[in-house]
């Protein structure tokens, strides 16, 4: 169990994370928030990559600082920036990460092959990472994070660059392994979180603005989503008033869907088919 108590991070006078309190048990947790909300800072803090200004991060009741390498032994991390040695082959890279995770050589070898299979890269494992596409690199990083079967899996934008088939395959896999570990999933692909996350942590300007199941979060914005239809020119004019509105092309014209505290008169309320994307927009705009 990972507990975050009164976690604060300041860069000079700027507060990136403000007295955050949250507890993560086993299962998949989504981390949502607009750019600059403090997601990356939060992940860097719980991976002990940057020093915190205040608060505590406890793993099974002990501060992760005092646990040091013992805590890191339980962490698998996929960074947002695709960091890897381009002159290594995929298999070499996983062996290297395994060695730095302190794995036994035989276990490292076995798990490398296993996870290469999971991320569908067995046939390309002897190729240099420099020749890989963004999606392939992402899958290698995911496999690297899963090596040694860590208790806590921290995935920062893990499905970026993947085609829909791969994305669905991987998120199903993540859901399957999350039964006996904590998975923290930070992404802008709201669909991924909606599909597999048990709970979603919403961040805005360094503060927690929601921490609940997707269904409950969606129910909370009922009455705040509205739509209007019209010609292209009419919709375009309205779009200027609601820059965060979502423009959609329909068979018989155009539609603008907005999320707002108070819906304008010319917008009809939408209660069916709300998604986590609407929740994201709601918190991003409000």
């Amino acid at each position: 169990m990972l507990e975050v108590k009164e976690l604060t991070k300041q860069y000079g006078s700027f507060t990136a994370l403000d007295h955050l309190n949250v507890t993560f048990d086993k299962g998949v947790y989504g981390l949502l928030g607009p750019n600059g909300a403090g997601k990356s800072t939060f992940l860097n803090l719980i991976t002990d990559n940057i020093p915190r200004t205040g608060g505590e991060i406890l793993y099974n009741g002990k501060d992760i600082r005092s646990l040091g390498a013992r805590y890191r032994k339980q962490v698998g991390y996929t960074p947002q920036l695709q960091g890897m040695y381009e002159s290594f082959t995929a298999r070499d890279f996983l062996h290297y990460i395994g060695a730095l995770k302190g794995m036994r050589l035989s276990a490292c070898r076995k798990q490398t092959e296993e996870f290469l299979e999971v991320v569908n890269l067995s046939k390309d494992a002897h190729h240099l990472l420099g020749s890989f596409s963004g999606g392939m690199k992402q899958r290698v990083l995911l496999a690297a994070a899963m090596l040694d079967e860590p208790e806590i899996l921290i995935l920062d934008e893990p499905t970026v660059g993947l085609d829909p088939k791969e994305r669905i395959h991987l998120r199903n896999y993540i859901a399957s392994i999350a039964r006996n570990r904590t998975v923290l999933l930070a992404t802008h692909v709201v669909d991924d979180i909606e599909s597999i996350a048990g709970r979603v942590l919403m961040l805005k300007q360094g503060r927690m603005c929601g921490f609940d199941s997707p269904a409950h979060l969606i129910s909370q914005i009922s009455g705040h989503v509205g739509e209007t239809r019209g010609s292209y020119e009419e919709i375009l004019e309205l779009k200027q008033q609601y820059p965060n509105g979502k423009l959609m092309q329909l068979e018989d014209g155009f539609c603008l869907r907005i999320v707002a505290q108070e819906l304008p008169e010319n917008f009809s309320r939408v209660d069916v088919g709300l998604t986590l994307e609407d929740v994201y927009l709601y918190y991003a705009v409000m």
Binding site: Y77, Q82, L100
Partner: peptide, 22 residues
Amino acid sequence: SWEQTSHMKMTLHTLYRGRKRN
């Protein structure tokens, strides 16, 4: 500097032997 140019610094820091031992 290779860790820096390969953007591996953060990843290494999260690994069991990625800090002092490395």
